Amino acid sequence: MFDLGTFIEHYGYTAIFITLILGIVGLPLPDEILLTYVGYNVFLGTLSLKYSLITAMVGAIMGISVSYLLGLKLGLPFIKRFGPKLNITETRIEWAQNSFKAYGGFFLIVGYFLPGVRHITAYLAGMSTYRYFSFALFASIGAIIWTSSFILLGVFLGNNWTIVGNVFHQTSKIIWIALLALLIYFYIRANRAK
């Protein structure tokens, strides 16, 4: 975090914007900690709350849009070409697309709050050919809620802003274990259905 902190201290809003784009596209950056640190800088008076919120929201929306375009351009053609070798059939692709069309808005909003998940929701939306207007609407709502929550949390916590890093470090482990358990469950269930 010290390198990101120095980056933000030196380049301010530009650093927030660039870091969020790269973090949401998929670089392993601690986005929640970054946003809380931004809030801490607002608490200190070195950054403006208004401009921090706007910059973070725009950066998050740009990052998730890039991920959507990557999923749209690279995802589905790749899956259709190599999917059968991995036992990914047209039926499964169609099921994934229909599921995302039905629940995609929920996944996009909630996905921001799940470390690691926000990186793939937009990619899945693009891969599932989820309508761009719906994607942009839900992704923007999620970005506004997510960035505002963590920046305001940093302002509220003030000098205790580092608590968020510890909580998210532990929470992300639990989330990944739960996701792995779900994947194993669905894999076993799919193989039994055969």
Rank of each mutant, 00 (worst) to 15 (best):
K50Q: 14
K50G: 11
K50I: 14
Y51F: 15
Y51C: 07
S52I: 07
L53G: 04
L53C: 11
I54T: 12
I54V: 14
T55S: 15
T55R: 07
A56I: 09
A56M: 06
M57T: 11
M57R: 05
V58E: 04
G59D: 09
A60D: 09
A60I: 12
I61E: 05
G63N: 10
G63M: 05
I64N: 13
I64D: 11
S65C: 08
Y68G: 02
Y68E: 04
L70G: 07
L70W: 07
G71R: 06
G71P: 06
K73H: 12
L76W: 01
L76V: 06
P77H: 03
P77R: 02
I79K: 02
I79Q: 00
F82G: 02
G83P: 11
P84F: 08
K85I: 10
L86Q: 11
N87D: 14
N87E: 13
T89N: 02
T89F: 12
E90G: 06
T91N: 15
T91I: 13
I93S: 00
I93C: 00
W95E: 12
W95T: 12
Q97I: 14
S99V: 08
S99K: 15
F100C: 04
K101G: 13
A102R: 13
F107M: 10
F107C: 11
F107S: 09
L108Y: 07
V110C: 06
G111A: 05
Y112D: 00
Y112H: 05
Y112S: 00
Y112E: 01
F113C: 04
P115V: 15
P115N: 11
V117W: 00
R118C: 08
R118D: 08
I120S: 03
I120L: 12
I120P: 03
I120R: 06
T121M: 11
A122M: 01
L124T: 09
A125T: 07
G126H: 03
G126C: 06
M127Y: 02
S128L: 01
S128F: 08
S128R: 06
T129M: 10
Y130C: 03
Y130V: 00
Y130F: 15
R131Y: 10
R131H: 12
Y132D: 03
S134A: 10
S134C: 00
F135L: 03
F135P: 07
L137F: 12
L137I: 12
A139L: 03
S140Q: 08
S140M: 09
I141S: 01
G142I: 03
A143V: 01
I144E: 08
W146F: 14
S148E: 04
S148M: 11
S149T: 15
F150H: 05
F150G: 04
I151P: 04
L152E: 08
L152A: 08
V155W: 01
V155L: 05
F156M: 15
N159S: 13
N159D: 13
N160F: 08
W161E: 09
W161R: 04
W161K: 02
G165C: 04
N166I: 09
V167Q: 03
V167A: 12
V167L: 11
F168N: 07
H169M: 10
H169D: 10
